[in-house]
Write a protein that binds this DNA or RNA. Sequence first.
DNA 1: GTGAAAGCGCTAACAT
DNA 2: ATGTTAGCGCTTTCAC
Lengths: 340, 340
Amino acid sequence: MAEASRVTLKDIAQRLGLSTATVSRSLSDTGEHRDQTVRLVKETAKEMGYIRNTAAADLVQGKSHALAVILSNTKTNFDSSIIEGIEQSAAERNLDVLILHAGNADLQAQRRAITTAVERAVRGIILVSLELQESLIATIEQVGMDCISLSSFVGGGRLPCITSDDYQMGYEATQFLIDQGHRRIGLAGIPKHGSITLRISGYRQCLEDNSIPYRESLVFRGGCLYQDGIAAMKRCLKTKEQITALIGASDLVAMGAINQARDQGLDVPGDVSVMSFDGTDIVEMVRPTITSVTQAFYRMGVEGVKALLSGDKPGSRFLPFRIISRQSTGPGPCLHGDHK
Amino acid sequence: MAEASRVTLKDIAQRLGLSTATVSRSLSDTGEHRDQTVRLVKETAKEMGYIRNTAAADLVQGKSHALAVILSNTKTNFDSSIIEGIEQSAAERNLDVLILHAGNADLQAQRRAITTAVERAVRGIILVSLELQESLIATIEQVGMDCISLSSFVGGGRLPCITSDDYQMGYEATQFLIDQGHRRIGLAGIPKHGSITLRISGYRQCLEDNSIPYRESLVFRGGCLYQDGIAAMKRCLKTKEQITALIGASDLVAMGAINQARDQGLDVPGDVSVMSFDGTDIVEMVRPTITSVTQAFYRMGVEGVKALLSGDKPGSRFLPFRIISRQSTGPGPCLHGDHK
DNA sequence: GTGAAAGCGCTAACAT
DNA sequence: ATGTTAGCGCTTTCAC
């Protein structure tokens, strides 16, 4: 009740007739004290309600025992598994996880998040699906802070990245649909910048390898949100482009596309097949369930922490993905009747 | 490149031939220095790549300029608007927001999160939909830290709470369905503990007020996740209970219930109406769109920060909600044909 | 195995 | 308007 100022090491030391040094060492298990002393100190600390002052500890040690995770707060949902992985992995190492939000394109918000992390001398920064501005990468390098990017290849090699192979995912998603007989395949929700655009290259190469002409008009650029899926399908159906399948850049894009198609009276997958990238929980929660290029998000989080703390500068690498077929895709029209 | 140890106030002071005090005051705009000095200091700081050491500042001031937001990391999605509100509100006050995850029932994880926050001497703790264990509330009180709970009434008055009136929401949701002609109304996904259980009381009272018998068997307890919605509808359809409407405790519960009903060949809302609590973005993203008791989450975040920082211990209060009708509800069967 | 003492980088009296 | 000084609570040499 007494709004008592907090218990400090000194309080414990006095009560026990020990020095603060002994108390400090006992509490952090340095192993250089008698079991009896350690036990006594720990019990007393707990009894007195001692909570260590991180600021003091961080200050003297020059670093904290926390990790910062910076998320792009676009309303896409794919990151919850990544975070789970990070937290699991961090907990094993007894590190706190501080989650910060930063807009994706918003330099202001990005700067704020990075500053918050750097000011606190965190052990490392994990960027999740963030296109970090050049100037901020420079800041991070300058202060020599460890940093890794997950789910986005960023920084042109200056930052280690763990992600899925966007090119390959684009290629295989396209091949998956071609194998089902589709030849007019759209791609929706790919933003202007970032490694995610490589999905277009993979898509394009796959079409070529299958002797299908690439058409600019079937690629719908945009964000990867629900609304972008809506917009893409709208434009798609307004033009004369008779696509029989659409690949959404995220689960939400696919959801938007599917809803728009159905709202306009089309059947999915009867009239048009839709598949998505990510494969978060939601693809199983909607009807039709959505065929997806499922990424190893949880593992990305786990490996991210491991790589970040490994000491030696880790290289970038890809994690495997796999395509899971669900209700939203089916044989293309040419398999129903005449084969071309 | 040189992994240079970080620039400190002292470095700036030396370079400029000023004292650290002047530099410190200039940087924090105390207004007691010549514009010229302030400008010079700020420019030099930026040029030298100065980043303040939060640990040092926090230590000497005895508190940080950050807020901790503790989320129950159950995979429900309703909290993103709350967080947005919090961040908006915090940014206006120049406070950093540190987001922490804690399991809902997991004492271990809760303790870890609270400790992380308290150790860092944050300005205040915002609990989001968390049933905080008694012992941890005691900890918070003991150290005299400000704390507020959003979207959950917790602590039996020891903690100020800003939430929606669960009783009233339960009542009005039920009345909404009754007004549509339903008389056999189920309630799904209400956990064992917490203020959320008051929804049952409201539901029950409403039934009574409408002379409809309350049946234990129509209330399906459980978590508020998608799977719980599935399970509830399954049990619902397996028994002889001919419900014509179901209220899900969250949007995800409703989604699960709807999918299960349809997977078993029922039409929504033709055969069974479904509505939900929360009203997050997702209710507009699924088909049928879901009628919901929509809560003022964003505002909850904004007001939460305001109340937390107000100084005087704020009381608990409710924010208004409203019911938004969408596709998942329709007239009950008795309105189709014979009226009772 | 334990204590004394220094000092991390900063802010806040207090002095000038 | 600016400088001096003390010290926040902790960890870590370095003695003993």
